[in-house]
């Protein structure tokens, strides 16, 4: 780890100001991706702004048709929250399967989204549910948030405060895990909401994306079999030592079918 200045502001305003003022500052939430990167000297910010003491970033709220999760809510809290279990059980199950127990006990929703790891689980849920990301500045629709490999719509000094998930009629997530990292080799989140079906794919490409062809088929008939012949073309998908683009393309269909089947079964 290279040396850095450390700040632990008590308010959102103070945190934003610290991040704005220090060009090479980074926000620290759970740190489960950032700290390994610091240790391996892959990241070397001049300052860290620890969001851990900011109360306003915490809390889960189920209000009518919207589930709101604070940015600093840990994965383990989402996995065990009664409100999440009632509102979007698929989200609780997704959170229960992120990383491992210790990571879930530190990692946060806001941190995962700001990092936008191409194989992370949460981006699939946020995009697959058509959620809205709230920051200290504005509200950003999921479709406008994830821009590319580790790239988001967040601007300097902008901090995610919470995410508002509209409650779907039914939803599910199916993941084929990378056996080494346990990140998604391919993960597919499907949801059927008020008048729309969403299919979001993580792990397969440089950034989470929607499988629109699948959405069309499912909008007509929300059943796994309609996807049997729908294939996301391998061009542009990731190809690495863990899986070829062709295999990932194949897995997208398999995982999408399984997610739909689970959503239909209410599992």
């Amino acid at each position: 780890m290279r040396a850095f200045d450390y700040h632990r502001p008590a308010t959102l305003k103070e945190a934003a100001s610290l991040l704005r003022k220090n060009e090479n500052a980074r926000a620290l939430s759970g740190g489960q991706s950032l700290i390994p990167a610091l240790k391996l000297r892959l990241a070397a910010p001049a300052a860290l702004v620890d969001l851990g003491a900011i109360e306003e970033l915490r809390g889960i709220k189920l209000d009518g048709a919207v589930l709101t999760v604070g940015a600093m809510v840990r994965h383990s809290e989402v996995a065990t929250s009664r409100d999440v279990a009632i509102g979007i059980p698929a989200l609780a199950r997704l959170a229960e399967d992120i990383g491992d127990r210790q990571v879930r006990n530190m990692g946060t929703l806001g941190g995962a989204l700001a990092n936008n790891d191409p194989a992370a689980d949460y981006p699939a849920a946020v995009l697959g549910l058509g959620a809205t990301i709230h920051t200290n500045k504005r509200a950003i629709a999921a479709d406008k948030f994830f821009l590319g490999l580790y790239e988001t719509a967040l601007k300097r000094g902008e901090i995610i405060t919470s995410v508002a998930f509209p409650l779907p009629k039914r939803a599910a997530y199916a993941k084929f895990a990378n056996p080494a990292s346990r990140f998604a080799l391919v993960g597919v989140f499907v949801s059927e909401g008020a008048g729309s079906v969403r299919v979001a794919v993580t792990g397969a490409a440089p950034c989470v994306f929607r499988a629109k062809d699948m959405e069309k088929k499912l909008a007509a008939n929300f059943a796994p079999d309609v996807l049997a012949k729908v294939r996301v073309p391998p061009d542009g998908l990731n190809s690495d030592i863990h899986a070829s683009a062709e295999y990932r393309a194949h897995l997208i269909t398999v995982m999408a079918k399984r997610a739909v089947a689970a959503a239909v079964a209410g599992k």
Binding site: Y6, L28, G31, Q32, I35, P36, Q102, N105, M106
Partner: peptide, 24 residues
């Protein structure tokens, strides 16, 4: 942050002590 040999409890939760700054 994979091996877990550094696991301790922080406010009752199992966490990886090699993946947390002491200041956190």
């Amino acid at each position: 942050g994979q091996c877990g040999a550094c696991t301790v409890h922080l406010d009752g939760r199992a966490v990886k002590a090699c993946n947390i700054l002491a200041v956190q």
